[in-house]
Design a protein around this nucleic acid. Structure first.
Lengths: 136, 136
DNA sequence: ACTCCCTATCTGCTATTTACATATGTGTGT
DNA sequence: ACACACATATGTAAATAGCAGATAGGGAGT
């Protein structure tokens, strides 16, 4: 969850450090697959287009996560040779995957609440307009 | 960012997997230090009390992050022997730390937006009340 | 004195994950 | 033949959280 031109900070490390919410990829994939069974490449594009991910998510991460979801029985896949272009592995969510998605929604609500708690305190001190000043 | 009784899933792994927002500890520490200079132990308690963290954050992580923030010049510290109990290392935020905090606020707003995008789509499908059904 | 517990800090280790780079192969247009 | 977009996969490095455990001071109770 980065989507940067590698901006560097005082310590010469990417300032996206820490911005990543580990595992958020999985519920995103499951949600999109619930809406429409499709293959990895399109899932990547959808995530970017819909604003679920800043920039295009890492292809390696997407494919690996899909494979792992399948190992755990949360999605199923089959090769689809119909249609143009190279063969695609088409994924669909399983009932177990839907359960898992619901669990994740709870977690995500909790995480959002923590971020909101942070931002509430932050804005109490600095105001909501602080980010405007930083438009460089 | 866990704070569970280790609930296990189908794959025998903690279902908090992925719930952790990497690096979120740092902006939390900086924000609290902006509000009040204090020592690691109290920061841990504050994070829990204020709902910035689910449960008490890991002590090792807190102390290590404070040390790293100091290496990077974002906080300063000195030993405080006055007061009861063992010596405490009292931290205070630096001007660079405040800058860093502002950068983080931007990142956190972006992350919150991604979570909201997810939840909006999710709730469009399942409704906001889905989590109620799961009250076990 | 002695033990127990709370406060307080620090370190070692491991599992997991992301981000990046790279490899492989198909089909289409020129 | 060639370039290019589509599509999937793997190797590797860096970083972090979580857990366990070590070290120590100081107060309360016996």
């Amino acid at each position: 969850m980065c989507g940067h031109e590698p901006g560097r900070r005082r310590d010469n490390r990417c300032d996206c450090r820490g911005a990543r919410m580990e595992g958020f990829l999985q519920p995103c994939l499951l949600l999109l697959l619930y809406e429409k069974s499709t293959h990895g490449y399109e899932l990547m594009e959808s995530m970017n287009r819909l604003g679920l991910w800043e920039g295009v998510p890492d292809a390696g991460a997407v494919y690996r996560n899909l494979r792992r979801l399948e190992e755990e029985g949360l999605v199923r896949s089959h090769w689809s040779t119909s249609g143009p272009g190279p063969a695609r592995r088409r994924y669909e969510i399983t009932p177990e995957g839907v359960d898992y998605l619901h669990d994740w929604a709870v977690t995500i609500r909790r995480n959002k609440a923590a971020l909101e708690t942070f931002l509430r305190r932050y804005e109490d001190i600095f105001g909501q307009d602080k980010e405007m000043e930083k438009g460089d």
